[in-house]
Write a protein that binds this DNA or RNA. Structure first.
Lengths: 345, 345
DNA sequence: TTGTATGCGTTATCAT
DNA sequence: ATGATAACGCATACAA
């Protein structure tokens, strides 16, 4: 008997030998092509016996398809990113694709490097949530961007951030707010989430709310907001009755500040965040929030990336957001529901 | 000129042609083997010009190494898992390995299926945080388990859960507790985290604390704990002055319950959790907690999995944990620091 | 030192 | 319907 290298994984050849058929027949059985019943049976038995598994790398080499998609994302521990990774991975797995996870830590150089790595790995496409304004991605590889427009040949998938901003204001107005503020921290990069501000302004105008905005950039300490609040307190009372924070994270920080300043949420001031992040991934919202449809975003990215047929890819796709009560607003009905749910969980 | 299929990625052959050298020479340049300086230069220029990238799948096919490791984990949105995924991915990337992310949703069948998928992908190893007690993993593939012992030929990496349980009690005792309770929810599966209970008991004995334990299994509603508390309240006062919860998640839920019952944390009762989970991945701890050394666990798993030389793999490795103040205990010094940090961040 | 030839495991195109 | 064979892109043993 021809004892190959010990412990080498069995190949199609081994299966063919074991089953007493030709190589091509085995291949056909594997790929579900028509094969005589008796042959099929013998091959299947041999596969069982040898515990044979196709080598997807050889497959990839042959077909010039790797069934791998690279995901460029800053990290996986930010809960929004974590959820996105999860949903994208599911969407990929559903289509028998696998994911090459590239965490960039917001590093522009790393982002560019990973594009190279992705090419080496001959991935079938790249999904990127990136921050490098000059990211070079040639047209030879299919790319879908999340939250950041990257040119006409690259589709961008995002939440409907403008509508989200509007929705936040609508909600605050419905809940009785008259004088609101928009708080934002983050890069000045041209990205879709920046439209939250425009939506906010638009909403304020539509509902006749007076508003103010406090925007700080990445370098500045978040305590700037505390100073902002202090300069807007008269007789121990904040002049705003509603705040829209650009992210749940910021809302969370802001709520701590407000507490320090002796203000109560939501009775003194109502707060709405953005993202729809939950404690421990599945628990309570950190605050009342505009929820991003993460699963839809993931599905859209993957579907867009892998659709061969759609020759004319849409440049920008905005998916609808929704509002969720999280304890920092005065929603009366929802409040009761929330209190009950808290017990149940 | 031999115009191959349009748009096909350039191969070594193309590079060789462009540089006017032989195929083998190109290969040597790529792999850093000795090559004449002038040849090397020409090859490098050709690589630049054609934007050539090695096809790592062909490499893998040749070398029978794929530089891929599969990670089996329930999901990526639980913050503890999310952090683990991040750290493992970093540890892998550092070694030029990539990760095949397999999220199992605690599904035993999926866990087993992914072992098959991993084999098809000819991964170089598997890291698994699994819950299937009967998971079949043959010795032909190298496997490292997290938190669950899986037999002698499979190393298991975990936190020092026993020491963690002890540490929690020590802390509670140091902070003045006399009568404490251990709360646990989770599967009855044989896993390392179960040692938290033993460590707790051991610590209570050593410090002469009286204690009680309330353990519910996965099926039961978490509200069981509320009933437990109620049956231990006399004259509006809880008879426990310290609680050790098996996870931060449970601690978080328990703290909500305590509030509902009119009890104040930490003045009425101090609470310590386990895991070291932070809000938004990098923010505040949800509670005072025993922190798992996630980065160390990740590094250990990868290093163990990829070490060719270590023929005799250790069956169980426990990594040291640490304590972190998170607002639910009466640490006086730490309290001041925490309050300040809250401002700064 | 550089070039040539073979084979990795698979698929696909041929004859049979 | 089935079997033989070439080709995918790369590494390597061997020849020049």
């Amino acid at each position: 008997m021809n004892t190959k290298k010990k412990n080498a994984a069995p190949t199609m050849k081994d299966v063919a030998l074991e089953a007493g058929v030709a190589l091509g027949t085995v291949s056909k059985v594997i790929n579900g092509l028509p094969v005589g019943a008796s042959y099929r049976l013998r091959v299947e038995e041999a596969i069982q016996k040898l515990d044979y598994h196709v080598n997807s790398y050889a497959q990839g080499l042959k077909s010039n398809k790797t069934y791998t998609v690279a995901l460029l994302i800053p990290n996986t521990y930010n809960p929004f990113f974590a959820r996105l990774v999860y949903e994208i991975n599911i969407a990929l797995l559903k289509r028998k694709y696998r994911m090459l996870l590239c965490t960039t830590d917001f590093d522009s150089k790393l982002e560019q490097d990973y594009i190279t790595i992705a090419k080496q790995n001959k991935v079938d496409g790249i999904i990127g949530l990136t921050y490098n304004p000059n990211l070079q991605v040639d047209e030879s590889i299919s790319f879908v961007s999340i939250d950041r427009p990257m040119g006409l040949h690259i589709p961008c998938v995002a939440s409907d951030n403008f509508a989200g901003g509007q929705m936040a204001v609508e909600k605050l107005a419905d809940l009785g707010c008259k004088n609101v503020a928009f708080l934002r921290v983050g890069s000045a990069l041209d990205s879709e989430p920046n439209k939250r501000k425009a939506g906010f302004e638009n909403g304020c105008l539509a509902r006749g709310l007076s508003y103010e905005e406090k925007i700080i950039t990445d370098g500045q300490p978040i305590s700037e907001f505390e100073a902002f609040f202090q300069s807007h307190i008269a007789n121990g009372k904040l002049e705003f009755d509603g705040l829209f924070c650009v992210t749940d994270f910021l809302a969370h920080e802001v709520i701590k500040m407000l507490k320090n300043l002796g203000l109560t949420v939501p009775s003194d001031v109502q707060v709405i965040g953005f993202d729809g992040v939950r404690a421990f991934g599945t628990g309570d919202y950190f605050c009342s929030t505009i929820v991003q449809p993460v699963a839809d975003i993931a599905e859209m990215c993957v579907s867009l990336l892998l659709s061969e047929t759609m020759q004319t890819k849409p440049p920008l796709i905005c998916l609808p957001v929704s509002y969720a009560y999280g304890g920092t607003t005065k929603d009366s009905e929802a409040f009761a529901k929330f209190a009950k749910k808290g017990e149940a969980l």
